[in-house]
Amino acid sequence: MSENGNRKTLAIEASGLAKSFGETRAVDGVDLAVRTGTVYGVLGPNGAGKTTTIRMLSTLLLPDAGSARVLGYDVEREPDEVRGVVSLTGQLASVDEDLTGRENLILLGRLYGLKRDRAKARAAELLEAFGLADAAGRLVKTYSGGMRRRLDISASLVITPQVLFLDEPTTGLDPRSRNQVWDIIRTLVDGGTTILLCTQYLEEADQLADGIAVIDHGRVIAEGTPGQLKASVGSGALHVRLLDPDDRPRAEAVLQRNLDSVHREHDPAALSASCSDAERGAEAVAALSAEGIGIADFSLGQPSLDEVFLALTGRPPDEAEGEGQTDTDDRQEAA
């Protein structure tokens, strides 16, 4: 990318973005550079600051410090211009549950300035395209999670946005709905939309994103392409479960010849080893068989977000945060 073209090709640029809520530094100096027409994944556990970042970029929150531009418009000084080019599908369903799917889309069409007939036609078009035509006249609160998400995304597309913010679009969805959402995202990017995708799943970022920022406690702790990121983490792992736990010491020795950091898992028949290369993994498994060690099953996996975190921060993603979460939920139920 040439230096002078850089400016134009960046759809989102943020530098030193920060936001605190009382004592909590939700976002603590985040820099982002997202090229136009790409999917950029912001990957992090619950409470990392993903939503807060998206809220600042989409003009919902004023940053305490730092600055950000979306397609060249400053989010603080030119919020109206920013709103003219972005759409947001928030973490909470950002459609009106007390209206029907069709009414939601017509309302948005009207708010975007479409004439009544055009807004109706547009709603019908989108409902059809997103497989919601049959449910168009039903109240959104009767929709399944997957339908709601699809409506939510289609609501962001009433007028095709140049930049789309998606906050955890597949959290809580079943695998089939998740795949549908992924297909939609791929189609959107093909159409030239720039997407900022917040997610807790490495696999999701891996599948969809051209670039990823891993964030934790409001800071970017790693950045790169999915490949770079996984490589920097030491990539995946080979998991092997033996037919006979007594074979484990022998199997361990075999694996150590082929792979690094072999270790025994809780399961007395299981072993794992770090393995970034499918071929070497296959060789290691073949070596076990050659030694006559019976294998119940094995898998060669990408690192999970847990592993990425462990590797990057030396600790698993915030157990404390998880507990805090349940506390909050309890309190809400009690209230």
């Binding site: 709103r83 972005v86 973490q91 369903a93 950002s94 708010l111």
Partner: peptide
């Protein structure tokens, strides 16, 4: 509800 966030990101 989340819908208010959508309203607030509209150019209106």
């Amino acid at each position: 509800k989340g819908v208010i966030d959508r309203f607030r990101t509209l150019p209106i």
